[in-house]
Nucleic acid binder design. Structure first.
Lengths: 351, 351
DNA sequence: GTGAAAGCGCTAACAG
DNA sequence: CTGTTAGCGCTTTCAC
């Protein structure tokens, strides 16, 4: 016995065939936009579908070897609007081609990530979108071997991986942000990294270092703290930076969330932003504009990254053997009010 | 020809049966935790599954009349962390029972909402979670008739609807917030509503009115502006309020996002929060704590609402004919720094 | 308790 | 161009 739906509502391809007076293979052809159907019959089938309110059964379709018109999206969590923005882009793109989205949250557990990937590729989805994967090496090879369409989001740059991906110009963005601080007159710039297992985090650090070197400033390892893209660690790192014998006059955090943590730390330390210390972030999530003071940051085109990735995935679904494509979208420095020139020496410790 | 997966990887129930030396019906029984299987065989099957790395095929399973172990989630958009918080709760709950999530975004288009519901109930998902539905009346009856498990989130209180739902004590929360403002000494309190087609918006307005009346203050319709839960409208409404001959000394916005709009308007008007005007919000999304000044607001247990709704949905999936259940979770006033006593008369226009 | 058999609704060869 | 024929992998009767 079927458990869902009333029988009367279950219009199948067979009913449509009946109504249109054709065989049900013809209906299937129309359904899948195949050729070899006379325009007249196609028309009749279409009308019958509309009249009966036919809705294709995804399960049957997929089981029989067709497409499910579903893509899987693997994210680590829904905590920040970082993901929200990317999802918005994905969603918009998918919507135009009538694809649906299956959401998987790994909660930053690496084992779950692999488990999901196995499960997904054996099931249901036509392709996989992986946002900031933590454990990609473990299954990327499998995905590739099985010719299973997939695209990484924001995970360019780690040389071990050669998978389709879309990201942003992390190095460039970090370079520009650092240069901006340098031009303001800062010489001791603290840096809070992201999760260093992520390509984007590495690139940002490199960009920071490159800008410093370009200005002939030797890199002080004390000024670089390893964060994890989360607010609490941003807070801790900033506190450590502040506690240095010779604290920085500016802090560059690898993402906005960390920057928020840093801002909190600065305030708790009794200092003012940007008077006593400048803060700069990365991402430009919506929140960045509304914190106090509005955060100067490097904008990543998150939504666009999402839509580009979805677009690319759709291409791979249509043609699984396309060559590996990698897209790098431009970042942009958004100047707001969290940075300014450093205080003349000796005035920092006014508190 | 199959398009996905390598044949060698496609372990089916049949392979498991082979390996375990039983018929594949027995494997199916084990898979579905049915009785009438000897412990010994069950054990053998389980071991074979593990060894072969068997993964059930959802499509086949669903097609054959079983559960898909997927629930659908219908939201209007991913713009705000309001949804993110709720999703976190849903996700956590579903995860414990190995259910997957299918995400549908309506982009606030009412027609899409109905279309999705039709599509979903004929397909794939075992149940439906509807967050802040806009057009629920259009399909709730269908859902009920078809005994299709569903739960509304944050849509209690509209008397036309009698569906399973979880929400929060909107009336009570608004009442308390208004009372708080009143106790601070405010007498002219502006109110920005939410989308009035939503039960929660209506309740919040009622709570506001009730508190005023309790204090013997006549309700001035000029002080009530119809918003839509979005920041731009919050901004506009606040501007209108500020332009009044006798402007309010406090503004109560029906959600935090609107409150942010109001804060912007107040600042653009050259006034300070909370010195010149107090602002209070509703929801307590994460952002509320980090705006400037930190927003006093009514906390809704968003995450908990999500998990309760998921839990309830699971119950309905297990037992579709359970009586309609409605859950109302408590709200709580979170006092931060956006409110204080009104300025002595005459000092407001100091600018 | 267990196996055999009959589909679920659809796609993809296969003949015409 | 169109209809016929097999399954896809699984759940569920139904016998044994």
């Amino acid at each position: 016995m079927k458990q869902k739906g009333k029988p009367s509502e279950d219009i199948t391809i067979f009913d449509v065939a009946n109504e249109a007076g054709v065989s049900y293979s013809t209906v299937s052809r129309v359904l899948n936009n195949k050729e070899h159907v006379s325009p007249e019959k196609r028309e009749r089938v279409l009308r019958a579908m509309a009249e009966l309110g036919y809705v294709a059964n995804i399960q049957a379709r997929t089981l029989a070897g067709g497409r499910s018109h579903i893509v899987g999206l693997l994210v680590h969590g829904l905590d920040t609007s970082y993901i929200g923005e990317i999802m918005k882009g994905i969603d918009n793109e998918l919507h135009t081609v009538n694809y649906d989205l299956m959401l998987y949250t790994t909660h930053r557990r690496k084992t779950k990530e692999s488990a999901y990937v196995v499960k997904l590729t054996r099931n249901l989805v036509d392709g996989l979108l992986l946002v900031l994967p933590r454990n990609a090496d473990a299954y990327l090879e499998t995905l590739r071997q099985r010719h299973f369409p997939h695209v990484l989001v924001d995970h360019l740059g780690l040389p071990t991986i050669d998978a389709p991906a879309v990201g942003a110009t992390n190095w460039q963005g970090a370079y520009e942000a650092t240069t901006y601080l340098l031009d303001l007159g800062h010489r001791r710039i603290g840096f809070i990294t992201g999760s260093m297992e992520l390509g984007c985090a590495v690139e940002r650090l490199e960009g920071y270092k490159a800008a410093l070197e370009k200005h002939g400033i030797v890199i002080d390892p004390e000024l670089i703290r390893e964060g994890d893209f989360l607010q609490p660690r941003g807070y801790t790192c900033a506190r450590e930076l502040l506690a240095l014998a010779e604290p920085p006059t500016a802090i560059f955090a690898s993402n906005d969330i960390s920057a928020f943590g840093a801002m909190e730390a600065v305030r708790d330390h009794g200092l003012q932003i940007p008077r006593d210390i400048s803060i700069i972030g990365f991402d430009d999530i919506p929140q960045a504009a509304s914190v106090n003071p509005p955060l100067t940051t490097v904008r990543q085109p998150l939504e666009q990254m999402g839509s580009s990735a979805a677009r690319m995935l759709l291409d791979y679904i249509a043609e699984p053997d396309r060559p590996v494509e990698r897209l790098e979208l431009p970042t942009e420095l958004i100047v707001r009010q969290s940075c300014r020139e450093p205080l003349p020496l000796g005035l920092t410790s006014t508190l």
